[in-house]
């Protein structure tokens, strides 16, 4: 039922966006106005291009195993005429809707773990609020420069971080024992149940201060940071880490999204085509994934992300704006 409903929603999204843009793009008048303004592109083309662009971004994100939010903000802020405030607001919504769509299924299958996520989410969401407030208060060029630097750092993490399917956690630490953060899941590839526990919980929690702050400040999803911390530092199995990271995003980004919404920084004309394009692309991406070569695509995405980060850095510094 829910799958049919989702398909219907996607179809409705495409119809709504295309008919909507058609209804406002009466053609000649708009073109004449654009020509009068010295612009070569009619205004409604930007949201339409954004829809198509995020559609392909969604495909790339799935095939490369990268979150859509982290690709969206640097690329859209670099190449579209929207202010960074609105791009970050839309970026949060893109990451949020992706997490909200995937979260329930992952929780029901026992891959995302509520007890593992909640303490981390509390820290990350609180700090994401502060990140959002700081991001909206700082001058655009400062945020853009910091975004560029952050994206380049993310590229380095993506290119170098190792992952461990089943990290060896010999003994759970005191805090995780008190909170009873432990679990069992069925690993299909191994055909057996895997018991897991975590360690270094206080250090992990403190890292979520930074992760949450950055998620709120830049409007990025934080899967790039969540997964290494959950998997490599805390020692949760990779599948549990990836799934719990997605679920965590739904809480972290919600808190930051409220700051952007209340401030007026979520423009439906930018946010809705982005969300629809990304979700549609993600669906197609899942189908392509079976035939694609994820490693090659991942390197393409990492290169694009690096270029977008570099461009954001130069734009922020006023060298290429």
């Amino acid at each position: 039922m829910s799958r049919t409903l989702r398909r219907f929603l996607f179809l409705l999204a495409v119809v709504a966006i295309t008919t909507g843009f058609y209804s406002i793009a009466f053609g000649e008048e708009q073109v004449v106005e654009a020509a009068r303004n010295g612009s070569t592109i009619v205004w409604w083309m930007w949201p339409a291009i954004l829809f198509v662009f995020t559609f392909f971004l969604g495909i790339l994100a799935v095939v490369a195993g990268v979150g859509g939010g982290v690709l969206f903000v640097p690329i859209v802020s670099s190449f579209f005429p929207f202010n960074l405030d609105f791009v970050r607001g839309a970026g949060l919504l893109v990451a949020l809707t992706g997490a909200l769509s995937a979260g329930p299924g992952l929780l029901k299958r026992g891959l995302a773990d509520l007890r593992l996520a909640l303490p981390m989410a509390l820290i990350a969401s609180t700090c994401s609020i502060f990140g959002a407030m700081v991001g909206l208060a700082l001058p655009t060029n400062v945020v853009q420069t910091a975004l560029g630097g952050t994206i380049i750092m993310i590229v380095i993490i993506m290119a170098t971080a190792k992952r461990s399917d089943f990290p060896d956690v010999k003994e759970a630490d005191t805090l995780s024992s008190v909170l009873r953060i432990t679990g069992i899941y069925y690993e299909e590839s191994a055909g057996k149940q895997i018991n897991w526990q975590i360690h270094r919980t206080p250090l992990g929690l403190s890292l979520f201060i930074v992760i949450g702050f950055m998620a709120g400040m830049f409007g990025l999803g934080a899967g790039w940071a969540n997964v290494p911390v959950l998997n490599l530092l805390l020692g949760a199995p990779l599948k549990i880490s990836v799934a719990t990271s997605v679920f965590l995003l739904s809480i972290t980004d919600t808190a930051a999204a409220w700051v952007y919404i209340n401030k007026g920084a979520v423009l439906p004309l930018i946010a809705v085509p982005s969300v629809a394009g990304m979700m549609l692309g993600t669906r197609i991406g899942v189908r392509i994934l079976a035939r694609a070569k994820p490693k090659a695509v991942k390197w393409i995405v990492v290169t694009i992300l690096f270029l977008a980060g570099f461009r954001a850095l130069l734009k922020g510094l006023g060298i290429w704006g």
Binding site: L9, A16, T19, T97, P268
Partner: peptide, 18 residues
Amino acid sequence: SLGGLALLVFGFFVYLSG
């Protein structure tokens, strides 16, 4: 989530359609 997405699409259509 499903309700939110449905409302998002519906609201956007109302917005663009005038």
